[in-house]
């Protein structure tokens, strides 16, 4: 137990001692946590709120809105692995601000993630994951994070941040292939999570998943899976104004992770219903 000095002398009252002269309770807490046997020896950083954010006497402020966002990420399993897909847009509100933001990333040889939502938060999450894979590399013992471990880790991180009322504003898809089995799971910004044979985030849940439910089979070939993915992407692009026609496809198989170069899909806007989309929806614009 660390000796914890009072922040001021009981006799002379608060403010009598310059507060910087004494360790703040927060700093003490921090120190104690690091040394305690109960403190996790790894991965604690992701769950801690920056102490600087707590200092200064001002009320704490958290992310209340996302700023630069990405839209849906889709994922399906197939015979030899999983496919993830998303567009490459980083939208500033509804402005298509960054058109080449890669939202699908490799974690290690057996796992890739894709994220929608606040992209700076995604970059932070990627930093966490990179640190974990770097640790695995440095340990040099052949162990690495399995896809389900990455998924579980992200669930914990996002749920913990939600519990601090400081959520990471992302929905994440985790895809992987390990031990001959594909893995596909998703985590929401408040820690909601599940695994399934096909997943989608955001708008994709409404636009792409009905198609997947209809057409997906776990024993699809790569060509079939890619075709289904293209179809889903196209449908998302047609109906989601915050998306662009520049996509990436990530593939995780026994051979490893490959993330495609950005590509565009052929679209056709001459459908009758596109000319007057409100015709069958009275009451809309």
């Amino acid at each position: 137990m660390l000796h914890r000095p009072p922040s001021h002398s009981a006799a002379i009252g608060p403010g009598a001692v310059p507060c910087l002269a004494l360790p703040t309770p927060a700093a003490l807490e921090q120190r104690q946590q690091l040394g305690a046997a109960q403190a996790p020896s790894c991965g604690a950083e992701a769950f801690t709120v920056d102490p600087a954010a707590l200092a200064g006497g001002q009320p704490r402020k958290h992310t209340q809105y996302p700023y630069v966002t990405g839209t849906s990420v889709l994922g399906i399993t197939y015979k030899d692995g999983v496919l993830l897909a998303s567009d490459t847009l980083g939208a500033y509100g509804s402005t298509k601000r960054y058109k080449s933001f890669e939202r699908l990333r490799k974690v290690n040889d057996v796992c890739a993630v894709g994220a929608s939502g606040e992209l700076s938060d995604f970059q932070y999450i990627m930093r966490l994951l990179e640190e974990l894979s770097d640790d695995d590399f440095c340990m040099d013992d052949g162990h690495h994070l399995k896809p389900h471990e990455v998924h579980s880790y992200l669930c914990r991180v996002l749920y913990n941040r939600r519990n601090k009322f400081d959520p990471l504003w992302n929905s994440i898809v985790v895809g992987g292939f390990y031990g001959g089995k594909p893995f596909l799971g998703t985590v929401g910004m408040i820690g909601t999570n599940y695994t399934d044979e096909h997943v989608a985030t955001g708008f994709g849940n409404h636009l792409a998943r009905p198609l997947m439910r209809e057409k997906h089979r776990p024993d699809m070939s790569e060509e079939e899976a890619t075709a289904l993915m293209h179809e889903c992407l196209k449908v998302c692009y047609y109906r989601d104004k915050n998306s662009i026609n520049k996509f990436q496809l990530a593939k995780v198989t026994a051979e490893g992770v490959t993330i495609s170069e950005p590509f565009a899909l052929e679209t056709d806007w001459n459908y009758k219903l596109f000319a007057n989309p409100a015709a069958n929806a009275p009451g809309t614009w």
């Binding site: 996790p40 991965g43 640790d135 440095c138 340990m139 013992d141 162990h143 994070l145 399995k146 389900h148 471990e149 998924h151 579980s152 880790y153 914990r156």
Partner: peptide, 16 residues
Amino acid sequence: VYDSAMPLGRMVRQVA
């Protein structure tokens, strides 16, 4: 955190 068993080597290994 990881929903898995800790590798033994990791447990006994001295690392950063």
